[in-house]
Design a protein around this nucleic acid. Structure first.
Lengths: 312, 312
DNA sequence: CCCAAGTCTGCTCATATGAGCAAATTTCGG
DNA sequence: CCGAAATTTGCTCATATGAGCAGACTTGGG
């Protein structure tokens, strides 16, 4: 039996660095065949683990537990093998798309937020999944650019694939002044959209974590110092651009007053609201969302679900 | 993008059934190249997950948590990728061997139980890991065969690799009559071994689960009906052949009176006792062992550790 | 409805890889 | 310490596999 550490090194070079067996052999002063055999052994003893998992594999037991523990209408927990955040996001988005497509009665008017996860979800919907859905944006978009942002393209895509139309919200998510927000919200163009949004029979959103990779930060809506201040005040993340603490309460009333979009109370209303959460960074905000009733349906990955149950 | 389910099917055939790309192509009426591309995509989207994990990778955070929660002297948690029981046992055994070899001061007199896990551990010790250790068996062995059983070979191997000698216990683990046990225990050949065992400065054991694959069952020491009776009385598994309930108490005093070997109280003494546990079947007994102080050091796999923390 | 842009398909070919085998080496019982 | 048995090594060769590429096929915009 060859030394474990060397097996490991060879396995990493082959499977992770993508080197060829011959390259590895040269680098480590071994023969090509030795390397081949070492790889076989590494697979044998489990240093290299190859698993094929069904793309839609869900963890029903966790779903059940999460659902009961937090009194949700429904929970979807997808299993992602390792801890690749990107992949987890993908799986969760796919599960969200499936869930959306399987909803009966099919939603007619969907209120959506925006973000990377929802973007993915939009891409996973199969064209023709519904007929004549209407999609309405429920919070402001990015301020920096004038061109249609991802928020817009996403809403449009959901609507388009569902054979319907989208109503976009052409306004920034966070304003400089409270008064600006008030003015904007009373403008017909904005007011009408928000009024429509309140009538949605389904809300779809994905909370944001506190990290500096949050979309709100890198789009310049808020900056690192804001983030630090919010974190210090107990913020665990944002929902529709509104920062909340572990109990789901608004952390900074001033900032919140400058945030344009639906009030969080609407998410707590009887209308079904679906939260998509993936990645370890969103654990804290996920907990806040489920415990404070901001969502009825949680779609997340198994790691997060387990964490939710463990620490509670 | 190709259909997820088909990607899955192809991946399973290739990676799990070991079929060649061409075979798969024929079976599914695809071209060989298509199959190759599908496999690439399956890896891409994470249907196929290849991970290389360091053979000694330990999960320090879990170790810390387990250690604190149950007030242990030490805890070692090894990560095993999936849920291959055989592999978990192997990793745990390897970790046990490492732990044993790294103990300072090195143990001089080691009391060992026996079982599949300890067997593996013995094999992992590198020859010369210590000088002049003495190994003593702490409970009876299998009754069926007269030849040196695995219990003996194991103890000998640990001793041999440690440049020392072993004292074996040539007696069955469970007797038919309480009196037989008493007679045996007062016989010098047995009494001396047990007396030596009480002086050990380290105990090493692996609890047994309630399943019918337990070594006690398939060696004929107890049978399925005994097992059922014990389970009904609240037994969660055995330690040194003695069946305990969730609180670590002896379940059946009669059976226990017929069991030959060290008393469990010795494991609870200040002497370090190391428990090796792997596999989901041993969860219950593992919990009993750590909560009732039967071990100071727990060596287990990550699944088990997580379970221990979750349900507690 | 049609065309341009993008995507997918089937293929050639160079190359990476595993099965099989004799030679070298290690292991182990006496 | 020796020689038989088991294991490991280096190798040949057949084969499986991925890169690259031209043609076929969608797809979406006008």
């Amino acid at each position: 039996m060859t030394d474990d550490d060397q097996l490991y090194q060879v396995a990493v070079r082959y499977y992770e660095a993508g080197e060829t067996q011959e390259q590895i052999a040269n680098a480590l002063h071994l023969t090509r065949w030795k390397v081949g055999r070492m790889l076989a052994e590494a697979r044998e003893v489990g240093i290299v683990r190859i698993e094929v998992l069904h793309p839609r594999s869900r963890v029903r037991t966790l779903e059940q537990e999460v659902k009961e523990r937090f009194g949700l209408r429904d929970a979807v927990v997808v299993s992602v093998g390792g801890d690749d955040a990107e992949q987890a996001r993908d799986r969760v988005a796919a599960a969200g798309a499936d869930h959306l497509m399987e909803m009966r009665p099919a939603p007619r008017l969907i209120g959506v937020s925006w973000g990377r996860t929802l973007d993915r979800l939009a891409g996973k919907l199969v064209p023709g999944w519904a007929t004549g859905v209407h999609v309405v944006q429920i919070n402001g978009a990015l301020s920096r650019s004038r061109q249609p942002t991802s928020a817009h393209s996403m809403a449009s895509m959901i609507a388009h694939h569902g054979g319907g139309t989208a109503t976009l919200l052409a306004a920034p998510a966070i304003l400089e002044q409270r008064s600006t927000r008030q003015v904007l919200e009373s403008d017909r163009a904005v007011a009408d959209v928000l009024a429509l949004a309140t009538k949605a029979d389904l809300f779809l959103f994905s909370p944001g974590a506190m990290g500096s990779d949050s979309v709100l930060v890198d789009s310049g809506q808020i900056d690192a110092s804001d983030l630090a201040r919010l974190a210090a005040a107990g913020a665990v993340g944002d929902v529709l651009g509104r920062f909340i603490d572990a109990e789901g309460r608004i952390v900074d009333p001033d900032l919140d007053g400058r945030t344009l979009g639906l009030s969080l109370d609407l998410l707590r209303s009887p209308t079904t609201s679906v939260a998509l959460v993936s990645g370890t960074a969103k654990r804290a905000v996920c907990r806040a969302v489920v415990t404070s009733g901001l969502c009825d349906v949680l779609i997340t990955d198994d790691h997060n679900a387990r964490h939710l149950l463990e620490a509670a």
